[in-house]
């Protein structure tokens, strides 16, 4: 055999290929295989168990006629936009403030980031207690003599989303701050000298010089945080269980409930395919941007 002279290319670097087998299996079976399976079976008639009877877009038609799903979608859009906006603004401001050569920098940073080490379950339960209308902040402030003080976000259909937002922001802003701080410190120090010589105020330098230069960090943070928001589930389960009524339901919870509690797999798969599509809409422009840039560099 000629193997000794010209080894089969499949066996070249064999050890590395064997070592990478778990990764290859994961990408092919889980990330590609499972996702494709879900998309395909979202077009089936499946109820308690997946079946091979395909019915086109029937599951999706039903999904978008279900008020709970529509509320879930609306909630995640409002929550997502507000959460991104607020956590970016606060995260950037905190990073810029910390960047001012302050004393106890490490202490402040540690305080702002510690909620990020906690789970959404812990976060949700703490804030559920703090926002509790009969014993939490509302009652405390009333006991100080402000009898008419109202702060019952969590108990009202119209405002429960903002209660979730307060908790979510508390948990996640530190992460945005850390990345922003890395971005700010990554900017060439010469820029600061230049801005100072030109007499540009510090806040203007941040806003009009540093922020545009941090585009890369901003976009990456945006993609990571946004992809995390789509998955929002634990926080809702721990804090409101989707209530009051169905006022704080979210898509990920819809999927879970229909998949495991209500035994309606078809609906769950259709809903998760919509989630996948949303993430792809966020992801594809980013990939396009990143790869476009890399090609241009070559």
């Amino acid at each position: 055999m000629s193997i000794a002279k010209r080894p089969n290319p499949l066996f070249r670097n064999l050890n590395a290929k064997i070592a990478a087998l778990p990764m290859i299996a994961t990408t092919l079976v889980v990330f590609l295989g499972c996702s494709i399976w879900t998309v395909i079976y979202s077009f089936s008639k499946s109820r308690a168990l997946p079946v091979n009877e395909f019915v086109g877009f029937a599951q999706y038609e039903r999904l978008f006629r279900t008020s709970r799903w529509l509320i879930s979608l609306e909630n995640i859009v409002i929550y997502g936009v507000l959460s991104l906006l607020i956590s970016f603004v606060i995260g950037f401001i905190l990073a810029a403030l910390i960047d001012q050569k302050i004393r106890f920098e490490d202490t402040f940073r540690t305080i702002y980031l510690y909620p990020f080490a906690l789970s959404f379950i812990v976060t949700g339960i703490v804030w559920q207690w703090i926002l509790n209308p009969s014993l939490g902040i509302q009652e405390t402030v009333r006991s100080w003599g402000f009898e008419n003080f109202t702060f019952d976000l969590i108990a009202n259909r119209g405002t429960v989303l903002y209660a979730l937002l307060i908790a979510g922001i508390w948990q996640g802003t530190g992460f945005v701050m850390v990345l922003m701080l890395a971005g700010i410190r990554g900017v060439d120090r010469e820029i600061w000298n230049a801005a100072r010589i030109d007499g540009i105020p510090v806040w203007k330098t941040y806003l009009f010089v540093i922020v545009p230069m941090m585009r890369g960090v901003m976009v990456t943070t945006l993609v990571i945080v946004a992809a995390g928001i789509v998955k929002l589930y634990d926080l809702v389960v721990a804090m409101t269980q989707g209530g009051p009524g169905i006022a704080s339901e979210v898509p990920a919870k819809y999927v879970y409930d229909f998949m495991f509690a209500r035994a309606n797999v078809g609906q769950a798969l259709a809903a998760s395919t919509v989630m996948l599509t949303t993430v792809l809409i966020i992801l594809i422009p980013w990939v396009y941007l990143e790869y476009g840039k890399k090609k241009a560099q070559r």
């Binding site: 590395a16 990478a20 990764m23 290859i24 994961t26 990408t27 889980v30 990330f31 590609l32 295989g33 499972c34 996702s35 399976w37 879900t38 079976y41 997946p50 993609v223 992809a227 789509v230 998955k231 589930y233 898509p251 990920a252 999927v255 879970y256 998949m259 797999v265 769950a268 798969l269 809903a271 998760s272 395919t273 989630m275 996948l276 993430v279 966020i282 992801l283 990939v287």
Partner: peptide, 22 residues
């Protein structure tokens, strides 16, 4: 190898809910 790595990284953005049932 780079193709698999790319899929792996982008796979981490797929919501878990999509892969749960399979």
């Amino acid at each position: 190898s780079e193709v698999f790595f790319t899929i792996l990284i982008f796979g981490s953005f797929i919501p878990y809910q999509v892969m749960l049932y399979p």
